[in-house]
Write a protein that binds this DNA or RNA. Structure first.
Lengths: 329, 329
DNA sequence: ATCGATATCGCAAACGTTTGCGATAATAAT
DNA sequence: ATTATTATCGCAAACGTTTGCGATATCGAT
């Protein structure tokens, strides 16, 4: 319970002023090598740790980022968070994590928290129906915001996205290459731009390269709905391929297929856009277009660092994607 | 870019002192209702937000918890984090997340960060080979520490654990009930107390209830090793049940079984201790003893709140467990 | 010996809040 | 009318650090 050592305590012990001690500890040229040595010795002896509260107040800044995601318990976001945390630490920052639960109200509250805590920056994947107002306030507070994955439309924002259109185009191409003609595409919340982009690219590719394919699109909001959608459709229609827009949807689709007792890929083939972990645990391995949460996390943090380094003009970065072949097609 | 409104600004506008404004905003009885009203009106008009930096410095406390886990990208820890974040928010706290990567050095560095940021409390699942020194320092700094899941041995600590022994005992009982006689138990890092507890209870139950069972124990450090261990053992030995101590191990075991092309449960049955998500995506559904990361997260946060509320004596809480029947046994 | 340059350090304000205490005025008790 | 009480508010210090500026001393150059 001994009280922490402060600059004042050190200065008193050495008959120096607080300012001299402060400067000595950060190698200010005004201070002689001799006193620097004395100060540093005593500081490490007394295990001096600067008071972050005071530094934050004085410098009006902190070394903590706010990270807002729809959900943490999600194979995509947890790998994103994992990467972001690593990168942040290597740059001397920490991460404050908040989840919105896809609720715009909670999201706004989380952003309020970010402002209250005066974080050094905010990284956010927005909830559906997200209001732009909260972002304006962050802007007013001069807090940099970087959107990722699920982003708003406006061009004035800084964004880092997966190659949504490209991934969906690749997915469609592969399905076409395998000559699938009766395709069920299961997509997520139609209000999200990520869904819209993937859906648009997906259907466009079919229209262009294989207009004769019978393509049916279904939307769902979670894994269970995906299961129901797939289950109902497949039991009353002939299908030779199911496309899952995300990991969450893939899980639902696979549960449906397991229940229907069809074999993959001979009865129905499967293709997904995925983070990569889940496709690997199924048998057969699911072929997927990779959208790496881990890589995205690293890229977003790099963008944030660049921003703090002065590159504040808005940009949209795109993380490239690639096909990973399994045995499901 | 307009500067933030402070107490001083409000007080100047109303010809009041800073202290009066401060007290008015927090309904101090010394202040008249009339001025309270005036102050609050102007405050909300100017969108006053208290400066957290200043409050932290003045009160020498913050509303942020440090949470240290071996890894974020993990179905157990991410559900833990998810629950912890929710509970924290409902109590007006936020979460600073740090991962140790099972590296004691990184873990110590993370704890140093927690001290530097003077978090309100630390929740940690320790890395193997973790040094007690860093915990002592937190104790000296009067920062409450609650250990969870992977905890040190000492009784002087506050801990919240899964019912490790109970879970393993239940698992063994079920395997015995199904009359499995050639069992492969795949366990994790033997240095961790969580492994030791589960292993001890598991083997003891067999010795007690079914000494004739041929029980072989293998250890592994990750999913890939689990796959190799299971693969090698099963291809050269007769096995009728595999027990997986964790989700990570289960994934490896299932990959091995898929490659060996055995059918579950007729050829080899499977039982796991799991968080619950992964067993549900296999076919057949895997029977498992549930150790809920989500529930543990809630319990840990409750314990932390109780601690901050004054219940500082060390305690060891145990989260009960239950069997979830699948079709793998 | 005087002057300007340089090296080294301290003073004091500032960041925005909280809080003990004292000040004033209004009201009630005697 | 005097005193005691209460209601209401302001003063000023404190939290620990950073930083512009001024102070002193040393030293070589003139």
């Amino acid at each position: 319970m001994k009280s922490r050592t402060t600059l004042k305590k050190i200065s008193a012990n050495l008959n120096l002023s607080v300012s001299t001690v402060s400067r000595a500890l950060k190698d200010h040229p005004d201070i002689s090598e001799e006193t620097k040595l004395k100060v540093k010795e005593l500081a490490s002896l007394l295990e001096y740790e600067p008071n972050t509260y005071a530094i934050n107040l004085r410098t009006n800044s902190s070394r903590i980022f706010g990270l807002v995601v729809p959900a943490i318990a999600n194979t995509f976001y947890d790998s994103f968070i994992s990467a972001a945390e690593q990168e942040a630490r290597e740059n001397g920052f920490s991460l404050m994590i908040l989840q919105s639960g896809d609720d715009p109200v909670l999201e706004a509250e989380n952003l309020r928290l970010c402002r209250a805590n005066r974080v050094a920056g905010v990284m956010i994947s927005v909830a559906p129906g997200s209001q732009g107002e909260a972002f304006k306030k962050l802007e007013e507070a001069a807090i940099p915001v970087i959107f990722f994955d699920k982003v708003p439309d406006s061009d004035t924002y800084n964004k880092v996205c997966l190659a949504d259109a490209e991934a969906a185009t690749i997915a469609a191409s592969v399905i076409i290459k395998y000559r699938k003609k009766k395709v069920l595409g299961v997509f997520g919340n139609p209000e999200l731009s990520i869904t819209q982009k993937r859906l648009a690219a997906f259907t466009r590719q079919f229209e262009k390269e294989s207009p004769e394919t019978k393509l049916v699109i279904r939307h769902c909001f979670n894994s269970n709905e995906a299961q129901n959608v797939a289950s109902e459709f497949c039991s009353s229609n002939s299908v030779d391929n199911i496309f899952a827009m995300s990991d969450e949807i893939l899980v639902g689709v696979m549960k449906a297929l397991y229940k229907l007792n069809v074999s993959i890929p001979s009865d129905i083939s499967v293709l997904a856009i995925s983070n990569g972990f889940l496709p690997g645990i199924y048998k057969p391995l699911i072929t997927y277009v990779e959208t790496s949460g881990f890589e995205l996390g690293k890229l977003v943090m790099k963008r944030m660092m660049d921003y703090l380094g002065g590159q504040t003009f808005s940009r949209s970065l795109i993380l490239p994607t690639r096909l990973v072949e399994g045995k499901s097609l």
